[in-house]
Amino acid sequence: MNDVSSAPHRPAAGARLLARLACSALLAFGAVQAQTAGPDLRERLAACAACHGERGEGVAGSTYYPHLAGKPAGYLIEQLQAFRDGRRHYWQMVWLTQYMDDAYIAEIAAYYAAQPPHTQAADVGAPALPAAVRERAEQLVHHGDAQAGLPACVACHGATLTGLEPAVPALVGLPQDYIVSQIGSWRDGTRRSKAPDCMAKIAAALSPADIRIVAQYLSHQSPGAHDEPAAAGSLMPPLACGDLPHAQVTP
């Protein structure tokens, strides 16, 4: 087995990671020390590999487990702390993170963030969506629904849906059931993100039928060549999310 340093990194992986971490530190996660993952981390994370893949690329054929590779480090830190501190509840994740301190969490997050982003469509083999479903989903994802007070998903998750540094994750490559369950848990309050929790507002504004349609649509998307999260500050989210800078919306 080779270690992380000999992993098939893109040329500027190290620099990219540093830039990302610098942004996180500047923007929101000042308290977290800039971290690089030690070379032997992959072996230490054998438990995680069972459900997320050795490099967080996801496990083939899973209908639920999300991938981790290439997601912004700041986002991953926030999630691991959320499982540990009772803001997310999938119990096997809680089981493995409950006695983990912030320093190790930051190192683990840096490890997965530095892996080549995995943004293959989750449901590659699935049949094409009926035209009407596709249209409605595209409308929501790319333009939102002004009447329902719903901004476009791309406004925060990026034009290619590959996320936004330092705290918005990719929406491509996620299984349909996972997306449905996450939006459901924001609606019933069992997933709580850093306040102000914009995703809770968005989840509340989506109708159950639209949730299913959007999830189905997203699980079919792959981003093509450009699969990295958008650079920090390159988008101004229309709502306040945690510590992310956001557009001033006049009421």
Binding site: A46, A50, L96, T97, D101
Partner: peptide, 24 residues
């Protein structure tokens, strides 16, 4: 069944882990 991750402490800041076998 569920695997394990020992606690992080100064003497073991980066624990090794054991994978879960439930389902496998």
């Amino acid at each position: 069944l569920y695997g394990g991750m020992p606690p992080t402490t100064d003497g073991n800041p980066r624990p090794h882990s054991m994978p879960p076998f439930a389902g496998r």
